[in-house]
Amino acid sequence: MSGAIEVRGLHYRAGKNFEIRDLNLTVPVGAIYGFLGANGAGKTTTIRLIMGLLRPLAGTITVLGRDVPRESPAMLAQVGFVPERPHLYKHLTVEEAMRFHAAFHARWDADMARELREDFLLDPSRPIARLSKGETGKLLMLLALAQRPDVLVLDEPTDGLDPVVRRDVLTALLDFVARDGASVLVSSHLVHELERMCDWVGVMDRGSLLAEMPMHSFKSGIKRIRLENAPAMLPEMPFVLVERDTSHRDERWLVRGWQAPMSQYFDGIGAIVHEVLDLDLEEGFVELLRAGRVTRARGGVR
């Protein structure tokens, strides 16, 4: 698969307590890729690495086929970026910030910028330092969209915004994607928000990517199965066993990549399935994180 963003074997260390090791991630062209993870999972660090703001210890990053950080300037000309924390020059007014940003982006769409500014009800003469959090979020999205990027990298773009502003921002984003077909990497810990808009999802925890799959697979493929009589040694499975909990009278398995015909597998090993529970995205996400942590704590393999 040729991705808009491809990360291979990425290794980065920040201090003694945090490390990204052997990270592989692909954002398909034209996809909206939801980058899920708890706080401190490494989403922002990964995004900063992708944007060429941090220097990886090993691995390769390519965005639209351009190597990062070697070809960062050319890459950045095609990438709209909304960072986790507002990074704009606070003393500039909205209008000045737009003018400043426009000067550096050859594909800047002034009409679109003006329209978005009006839609977002941003006062052009107001200094950024005096904007509310919601207004700042809108301005950041405006700047990222009006440069008409091929890829958008959005780091928690709606974090801390009220529902109305969040809807405005996401609507503008989705309109743009629908019109221009841009690829989007959007990180968030707000699972339901991503569930509505993303077609791919990646789940990260403690510097590792736990899962990466199409959203529909994620939503339908994660199951909690209650069963009994399963042997200790299991033959090869057609799904991914994320967790096997034997502490209860009935065993509880967390699996992903599940499809209905796979129930035949249990007949083959002599196990009796009592229940196959569907998990929604948030439950799946939480279970995935929990299982990943337990597995890591045991030193086992996922």
Partner: peptide, 20 residues
């Protein structure tokens, strides 16, 4: 000063080389 305040993130996300 303005770049120091923002940790240079904005300047580094502009599509020009650092020397430029």
């Amino acid at each position: 000063n303005a770049d120091h305040d923002g940790g240079h993130v904005y300047a580094l996300s502009l599509p020009i080389p650092r020397w430029h």
